[in-house]
Design a protein around this nucleic acid. Sequence first.
DNA 1: CCAATTCGAGAGCACTGCTCTTGCTTTGGA
DNA 2: TCCAAAGCAAGAGCAGTGCTCTCGAATTGG
Lengths: 239, 239
Amino acid sequence: MSSSTAQGARARARMEVTAAIKDEARRQLAAEGAAKLSLRAVARELGMVSSALYRYFPSRDDLLTALIIDAYNAIGESAEAAREKAAADGPVQRWTAVAQAVRDWALRHPHEYALIYGSPVPGYTAPATTVPPASRVGLVFIGIVRDAHHGSALTEPPPLPADLRPEAERMAADLAPDLPPAAVAALIAAWGELFGLVGFELFGQFNRVVEDRETFFRHAVARLAQGVGLVDGPVEGRR
Amino acid sequence: MSSSTAQGARARARMEVTAAIKDEARRQLAAEGAAKLSLRAVARELGMVSSALYRYFPSRDDLLTALIIDAYNAIGESAEAAREKAAADGPVQRWTAVAQAVRDWALRHPHEYALIYGSPVPGYTAPATTVPPASRVGLVFIGIVRDAHHGSALTEPPPLPADLRPEAERMAADLAPDLPPAAVAALIAAWGELFGLVGFELFGQFNRVVEDRETFFRHAVARLAQGVGLVDGPVEGRR
DNA sequence: CCAATTCGAGAGCACTGCTCTTGCTTTGGA
DNA sequence: TCCAAAGCAAGAGCAGTGCTCTCGAATTGG
């Protein structure tokens, strides 16, 4: 009788309550961390009894999974927004802009970042529904390299070592068939390395080591970009 | 009346019980992860009542802190052993050997690795006693770069960007005054990036992306070593 | 209009970290 | 040598957790 957005008051209310639960859970997550997120406390704060909450999330882990997906989408959107904003800049600037967006989001939502990039409980395999949201940030970086490649702003990668070649070609075929396998391999490494920098800062490993983290991070990720083959402007070019 | 190793049967027994508690806790940690480590389960397994355990560790967090220190020492020893074993090799080989030791230890003790390099609960400041053990791996890498530098096997780093210079000089003064500031900055970045690679593999981020992780990791860390300025043998040299 | 489904509330289970009190054992000084 | 002091294990108990089950009430769709 109505559109998909308001099909019955029942389903409507269900969506609202579900959202309210997630909001309150996210509040507690941001305030105290995932370890202290309590279903009962969420229910209490919402004025409902704890057992009622199980009508919406069958277990605490399911609630956490929902928050994980939301967090992946949030950091992904943040990265995509940074890409749009830097659309007119050179490849290295776009790369560092996205990297800084990732770092900023992480610093602003440390517990949520820890939830998705911290220790997702080794042994726990994330449900398949988390895969697409989790890929968004990576896809942004792939897109930047792809644009650079087609704009002739990607340096010729050094020849692949023989033993890395099969894996690099496989990864390229899976992720970006139009890019040189060596660039794809370098890109994936830089992707992981970037999050290593963010994690080390966030989790205190840089505590008595790096002071001016902003500057340090900016140059480190710029070097990562160069390692992937990005340069500012066409390869033999201006600037 | 006796040496420091056996001063009274009382203190002796205390050490043994303390060690037994840590051993059992480590067992549970390895089996189920930090979240499911239960003081009561540890006590139960040891045939004692839970309240007795509080004579040895005033809280669950204190037990975890003890395990954290042990884990830092274990991965540090692993790295140091790899350095000794590769003492005769070139700088890049030594670097990758240590890096592979770190990765191997992480893969063999995933939950302990997650405990120290995963999400140490943002906001939780580690007690000062954890700092020296936590530094051991980093010191190994610094030592490798230092040896290379004094053996003239460190390439001249590119000039420091103006805005990074103060921070790089400060870091060099703190950590390795005999090394070029640019090399120190690159080293610290590579240090964080290395653990990013390990974490991404361990925590599943590479799951449908990287298949031949061994090979991929070896080349990635070799590139990191080159980024720091390490080369095999003297700079204008053999091989 | 009524059977079927959905929902909130409450009681209850097994578990957790942690505290406090009660006795027993070991210790070290008079 | 004796004895107060300290260290220790045990048990009961508190407040909190995730989760299950049952029971009425509300809402739904045929």
